[in-house]
Design a binder for these strands. Sequence first.
DNA 1: GTCCGATCATTCGTGTACGAATAATCCGCC
DNA 2: GGCGGATTATTCGTACACGAATGATCGGAC
Lengths: 157, 157
Amino acid sequence: MAPDLAERETTTEDETALGGYALARQVGHLLRRAHQRHVAIFQEGIGAAALTPMQWAALVTLVRDGQASQNQLGRLTAMDPATIQGVARRLLARGLIARAPHPADRRISLLAATPAGVALVKATLPAAVAISEATLAPLNADERRTFLQLLQRMAFA
Amino acid sequence: MAPDLAERETTTEDETALGGYALARQVGHLLRRAHQRHVAIFQEGIGAAALTPMQWAALVTLVRDGQASQNQLGRLTAMDPATIQGVARRLLARGLIARAPHPADRRISLLAATPAGVALVKATLPAAVAISEATLAPLNADERRTFLQLLQRMAFA
DNA sequence: GTCCGATCATTCGTGTACGAATAATCCGCC
DNA sequence: GGCGGATTATTCGTACACGAATGATCGGAC
């Protein structure tokens, strides 16, 4: 496999022409790659439960809060109304959540985890913890604290 | 707007049942939200260039490296062959990049930025720098160094 | 009591993201 | 010199992600 020539061929515009801008050092690129790596760890670690990160987020939130409207669940998990719609539809199809009409507001249908959904969350919780742990594996305890604290501010600024 | 009742209705399973697992504190959730915030800043900051983060990544990489095969460009920007295909197709359609047959390998067509693509990158570079800056705005200079160093390890571990 | 702005859920369109399968081509090994 | 494994690009299917538009409903101001 032609070692270097393959990855760096004819150089038309040198990096100097980009004024020191290196994609690999930009926050956005690093955030994307770190998230990408986490999703891969998640898929691997979630195993037989076969949930996506978003499905897990929605389900675990419903288990914690008991019930919520669809848009409300979207806000709690940082999903667009259009996005949570698809996530909810797939969880509904698997029988992990259920809908009930809101007693007073006919626009709303309340979502709640079914017994199967609650059971799945309880069974999967150790895997979820292990996933977070594995994602943070490159850092030691001190670094994890620092990183999470800074990341929190980057996320919610 | 019913303040608290709306966001926390009937609580079936208390947080204690989740053994202290709080979605809002998990790395994966925070990485997703930080990335989400960055993409919003990017869309806002890129302005008239109307590029997505991925299109920018591919284009700036081609300007730096001169030319690359499609899969190679995907590897350089951390995109699946299936994903880079769509990104390249859209850049091609806008005339920002062009294809040429590889002189020796008929499987490969080489991608390169067109003069229009190079010009767009040069014109957009200040905006790209400002986007990275705006994304890191919640942190001071010391924190940025620390965060980027740790994030780098999280991304490439 | 009725109108008006806000909210709820859905749908459409576009753009990542990636596993899996495919056809064409390449290359090293025998 | 032909064969088998690797690589290239494409396609299909599924799942986020979100702007924008829609129709139903709600709630408060008048």
